[in-house]
Structures are given as C-alpha cells and as structure tokens.
Simulated assay, not measured.
Amino acid sequence: MQPIKVYNGPHGQGPNPWKVFIVLEELGLPYDIVWIPYREIKFEPYTNLNPNGRLPTMIDPNKNVTLWESGAIINYIIATYDTELKLTYRDDRLEDKWLLQSWLMFQMSAQGPMFGQKMWFTHLHIEQNLQTAIDRYGNEVKRIIGVLNDALGKQRKKKLSLSTTTDDDPVWLVGDKCTYADLAFAPWNTLLGTLFPGGTLDIKTEFPEFHRWSSNVARRPATRKVLEYREECIRTMKDTGEQVVERQADAAKMPTYEPSIGVGDS
C-alpha cells in the first residue's frame, strides 16, 4: 500500500490535520505529511486540491481519491480501510454505528469552531482584552465540555449497571470501545491550557469525566505517538502561522502556547 498523503502547515499547532493522522496511526496505515507553508494554502496549486484553502487535504494514491475537510477524510478512511472495525461498529449495532456520526459532527460544528474562536479572541485579535468576546467563547467552550462530561457520566452509569466493571475503567462516547468519534476530539482537547491561560479552567475538578476520558484517549499508544510528534514539530519547526497574522488586518500576534494537556503524561 502506498502512503496516504495529508497536507499540514508547519509548525503543526493547528489541530485539524492531526485528527486525520491519529486515525491513520490507530489503523496502522502508512501516511506521509506534506508540509505546506500557510502563505501558500490560499492560492493555486493548493486550492486546486482544496477550494477552501484550509488544512488538511488528503490524497490517497491507492484509490485515486482527493478529499478536504477533516471529518470527510476521517469518514473516508474508516469506510475504506477499517475493515476490522477497530474504530467503528458493524450494521448489527446500527444505532451505535450512526451515533458515532453525531459525535463527529458535534466535534466539527461545535468543538472546533468554538475552541478556535476562544483561541482567536484570547490571543490573536488585534483588540486585546475584548472581554465580551473572550467570555462568550469561553462559556461556549465550557458548555461543549459540559455536554461531553454529562454524556460520558451517563455512559459510566450505564456501564456500571450492566456489568462488574469498576469505576476506574475507561468509558467512551459510544458503546464499549474507543472509536474515531473519541479520537477526533483529541488534538483540540490538548489546547485547553492555551485557551484558558494561567490555570483559569480547572478541568479535573470542574469536568471530571471529560478529564478522565481525554486522558485515556491521549495515552493510547498510537494517539500518544502522534501527539508527541506534534509537540516535537512545534518545538523544532518554524511557525509559518505568522504568515496568517501578517495578512489579516484584525490579527495582532501569534499566541504563546501553554504545554499541551495530556501529552507526555504517564
């Protein structure tokens, strides 16, 4: 099998391409990262691949398929290559199979956009300390985490009522195993320290089920490998994200990132 190519922008802080890399790594599929400076993603030839001029874009030379939008790419990889159902369910668990889509769409429509807006107004917006926007998106981030926390709490109660499992065992968003739905949240979850600098959000105390789940996802060997490589890229590569700030009139400067949450923990 030829490696699947996925475009990413150095130094790799942007979370969305890493969602795809995590799924590929969890399935043991070969892939190559195609590094492209941010200044090039709004112009041809890249926009011939991705008309939206964003990251990631995937090229699968094995099937002659080119796709953009991380959710669409994840769905393609699962449908095409997860023949052993490592990260999904079969049709005899039809509700679980499709409920994974609800959580993936929630990640795409809620977590990504709202976490991104909190990042923007906390760190990048030219009008610093625009507190109404910071508070609005901070509350949205907490609401989204709360949705996950409550759903995971219900999963734990359900699991405890049906089996002899202990309260320390991991629970997942759907069913009895970690799936692509859980994995899709991982890269954005690691940024919560940057979204709430100075320890202004105590995740472990305020959202204990979310904290346990996020930690369990991040310590999976394949996911951990990808997240740690991401940290290495952030540490060693030039950040071409500065090119985004340079061309946007409402941007001030790139943020100073806090250490990624859950990466490198035992």
Rank of each mutant, 00 (worst) to 15 (best):
R54F: 09
M58E: 08
M108V: 11
T80R: 15
G53R: 10
T88L: 14
K118D: 01
K225A: 10
K157L: 05
A79V: 11
A72N: 15
A186K: 06
G241E: 05
Y76R: 15
Q248C: 03
I41L: 10
L148I: 05
K63R: 12
L201F: 08
M237T: 04
L195S: 02
P3M: 13
R54G: 04
L87Q: 07
G262E: 12
A252S: 14
N129T: 01
N50W: 00
L100V: 03
E228N: 05
D169I: 14
R224Y: 07
Y137D: 02
T236A: 04
E228H: 03
G9D: 02
P51W: 06
R219H: 13
M108F: 09
D150N: 13
N129Q: 09
K19V: 00
R247H: 04
K19S: 03
N189P: 01
D150R: 15
I145Q: 02
T47E: 02
T132P: 00
D60C: 06
L87A: 06
P221L: 08
K154S: 06
K42Y: 03
N52I: 11
N149Q: 07
Q243G: 02
P221E: 12
L104V: 00
L24S: 01
E140W: 14
A186V: 11
R247I: 11
V20C: 07
P17L: 01
L67Q: 12
Y229G: 04
M114H: 01
R247P: 01
Y46M: 09
